[in-house]
């Protein structure tokens, strides 16, 4: 089986941003990252330092994948939600279909219940866009780098 890339065009990015912004506002969360199950960022809204978001995405996808295996060991298909509670900040992780995860960071300006409620609704609105970007296979306009060395030229 060939692994198909995720392909995001302008209209997809706009649709995702609108939906994620609406979720952030309704849930009063500070950050939301839509993550492919392999750990890559699909879209991100709210505040984070760029590199932090990449690490968050990789670690969250791994944590979710590990927990999924734990679920199977006790006879569950999967856990649909993961929640990590901190003293000031919390992380809520939930599924968007079979291919994506939604990571939400929030603090005491909101509640877990509110985040869970709106995360469920957001997953429904995000799903068609997530399915759209995963369903494409034609790639155009990518660069031909030939024999160029991308790293280690210093």
């Amino acid at each position: 089986m060939d692994i198909q890339p995720v392909i995001i065009y302008e209209e997809d990015a706009r649709d995702l941003a609108q939906r994620l912004d609406a979720f952030l506002k309704a849930s009063r969360s500070s950050l939301v990252i839509l993550i492919d199950r392999s750990g890559q960022i699909i879209a991100e809204r709210g505040y984070s330092r760029k590199r932090d978001a990449e690490e968050l995405a990789a670690l969250a996808a791994a944590a979710f994948a590990a927990t999924e295996q734990v679920a199977k060991l006790i006879g569950e298909d999967s856990f649909s939600v993961l929640f990590h509670q901190g003293e000031e900040r919390n992380i809520h992780l939930s599924v968007v279909g079979d291919t994506a995860l939604m990571l939400t960071a929030f603090d005491d300006r909101t509640t877990l219940g509110l985040v869970r409620l709106y995360a469920g609704e957001a997953a429904q609105t995000l799903l068609p866009v997530v399915q759209r970007i995963h369903g494409r296979s034609v790639v155009t306009g990518l660069p031909d780098i030939g024999e160029r060395r991308l790293f280690g030229n210093a």
Binding site: I3, Q4, P5, V6, I7, I8, Y9, E10, D12, A13, R14, D36, R37, S38, Q40, I41, I42, V139, G141, L142
Partner: peptide
Amino acid sequence: MASINYAQREITC
């Protein structure tokens, strides 16, 4: 899974 984001002109592998 690679992602190609034409909106941000990013390829991630």
